[in-house]
Amino acid sequence: MAISAQAAGAAQGMTVVARTQTQLVRRRFFRHRAALIGMLVFGGIVVLAFSSIGFGPLPGWWDKSYLATGAVVDQGRPTLSLVPQFLGGEGLRWGEHPFGQDNIGIDYFALTMRGTQQSIIVAFIVGFVATTVGTLAGAFAGYFRKKVEAILMRLTDVMITIPVLIIAAIVGRSFGDSGIVVLAICIGLVTWPTLGRLIRGEFLSLREKEFVEAARALGTSSSRIIFRHILPNTVGVIIVSATLAIANAVLLESALSFLGVGVQPPDVSLGQLIDTYRSAMTTRPWLFWWPGVFIIAIALSINFIGDGLRDAFDPRQTRVRA
């Protein structure tokens, strides 16, 4: 006896929603102020790191190299000053060695930029590998259930008893000196299970939905259902967790490098810089400060971007219900 216009209205509503989904997400994201600031900060760091000292064959605008040693000026103190003169500071000044020099006279700005580049690359590769593997595994397990699921669940059970840092440290010990790309791929290959579980949960709930039933009733193949029908509906979850995985990877890489089982010299990364100079903490604290500040800025801005994306894709949390 229900008013069936209701259904018609709902159906109309659905198509409208579907058409503007992307716009809606974009609009919600751009309303998230912290996420926008995060975007700006992270974008700024990337541009700074890659344009200053250049990357690969590309030259940068900074005239010093992260490899060249030199005379240590003023005990290697940073020449950067941000406090204007009328506030009693030394004025806004960039100077010869804005971030100072290390004990053998390497320009610390160049070194920090190099570390930032490497840390960002590692984090993105780890995030990409973990997300891809996690999504595929979670998707198959969530859709096929039974065997595949059992295997995946047992596998994640096993991985969950091993703290991420432990397994990553062991992998890092093996592949630390094979270059950052190999290292990052290997870390990605051991950190996907949490993500896999998440995606599986999402698939489990979606595979019960009517549109999947309908597709199955029409005889659509499983792979088509997974990739055409379900996967697009989990994009939100995947993008958000990928973002957060990258933020975590920044921290994980720096922790591994700090412990000496991550990026190995002559490669540099932010964590490895802190490890190298930790004994200089009392005499040259800036050697410790700068990489730390960059790690925090990167992780914080990516975390905020992730939060903005989550709000944009899943606004449930921010809306009040009757």
Partner: peptide
């Protein structure tokens, strides 16, 4: 026969 009101609120 059901005669629903067409359209939506």
């Amino acid at each position: 026969r059901l005669r629903p009101i067409s359209g939506a609120p």
